[in-house]
Design a protein around this nucleic acid. Structure first.
Lengths: 221, 221
DNA sequence: GTATTAACTTTGATCAATCAAAATAATATC
DNA sequence: GATATTATTTTGATTGATCAAAGTTAATAC
């Protein structure tokens, strides 16, 4: 059984992994995410490796093992189901539920969670629109679509780049069109055969449909 | 803020205090109640005294301070409201709720508790018939105890019957074991697993602990 | 190709909660 | 009253989680 501290580390590492679409999470990131000093993160990583939750690659970061990922997914499920309950049933304010769920997710048993899921009608998304992992720990993630198909104003996250041509990848890197990045669609005009997008605070720029087609994105809710 | 360990000590000490109607709880009792070694109980007592939760009388026991009692009462409130929720709303089995509430009571915030109370319609008794302390930490009336827990010679008044099984209720009616009736405890023997009681001028009879447990009584002074 | 900087690791210390086992005090027994 | 028993306290050690500060590496800059 993981302690609730370990559960927190696992969950946060999973979130970063999914979010940035990377395999190893650097220790610095772990430390800031959990609000501990880097030294603490390193020593926890070693203990967690000893207990089989993750693999620790010195000076590179940590990656969850299958066992660790399973628990982490379950934490996400707990968190999101609890947030749903707090909003739907107890009518708590949207702004408070995160912190509340953060506490409760460590205390709720599998059995109570199952009953809660049933009571709520087995919701698939939490109040923020995030998908709730299934009992087996699977996130049925919203299927990705091409950048070309996006509507103006949408906020999307880059999922993957289909073209492996190095020239194109180089261009994509320069424009920060990398997996995990969030992008806003500023314009999309069939007649102009182009989409205009903005990455972070950079200057907006346009991509022809030919290129936009090569970029798969996920809608951010 | 007390840690959840401290919360457990406080709650358990309060329960023993109410139960045995005594002011000081001896360390041995504290230790067994919390399933720790006597040494641990002693050292916790010292720390808790330092933090103002209780007064520690060496070789005699501990007594809650006002501050400690307030927190302990609140724990009882949390516990009982949660048990109510688990049975009423989530339909958990009567036998499981105690352990579940034991975990959740440390994680639930005052705000969520308040919403839960509201959602449940501000119940005054938990599923076992125990009174739920008010927000201010007041128990509305002398807490009832099970018939099984009574000492020989006590005179008690029946408060409620927990088992709603019709066969059992029929039996209870025959024996005049009905709310309001006064009963005298003629004998109670753990080895025999039975209590012997007398209702009015009727012939005394015995009840197995299994059944005696289902009957809540109030002590008559 | 060295110097600077940023990221990471080590070291030594602390705190809460616990145990086992030895020491001490209080109570009961003869 | 001396002894045996039981309850309690002390002592010394451990474990998990943490920090501050010093020490290493690797990457970046110049």
């Amino acid at each position: 059984m993981p302690s609730s501290t370990v559960e927190n580390y696992l969950k946060q590492i999973l979130i970063v992994t999914l979010d940035e679409n990377c395999s190893k999470v650097p220790m610095g990131k772990v430390a800031t995410e959990l609000s501990v000093t880097p030294g603490t993160a390193t020593s926890m990583a070693k203990n967690m490796e000893r207990d089989g939750w993750l693999t620790y690659y010195p000076r590179q970061g940590v990656a969850l093992t299958r066992k660790g990922k399973k628990v982490a997914m379950n934490m996400l499920r707990r968190h999101r189901l609890l947030e749903t309950f707090l909003v739907e049933t107890l009518d708590l304010d949207w702004s408070e539920i995160h912190a509340e769920a953060e506490e409760l997710e460590h205390a709720i048993s599998e059995k109570v969670l199952e009953k809660l899921d049933q009571f709520l009608g087995r919701p698939r998304y939490d109040p923020h629109g995030h998908p709730i992992p299934s009992k087996g720990g699977v996130i049925q993630r919203p299927s990705s679509r091409t950048l070309q198909s996006c509507k103006v104003g949408m906020k999307v996250k880059i999922d993957s780049i289909l073209d492996q041509e190095s020239e194109f990848l180089k261009f994509a890197r320069e424009k920060k069109l990398l997996p995990g990045r969030e992008v806003r669609i500023m314009g999309s005009e069939i007649q102009a055969d182009a989409v205009t997008l903005k990455v972070g605070r950079d200057q907006p720029f346009s991509l022809g449909f030919r290129s936009a087609e090569k970029i798969l994105v996920l809608e951010v809710v």
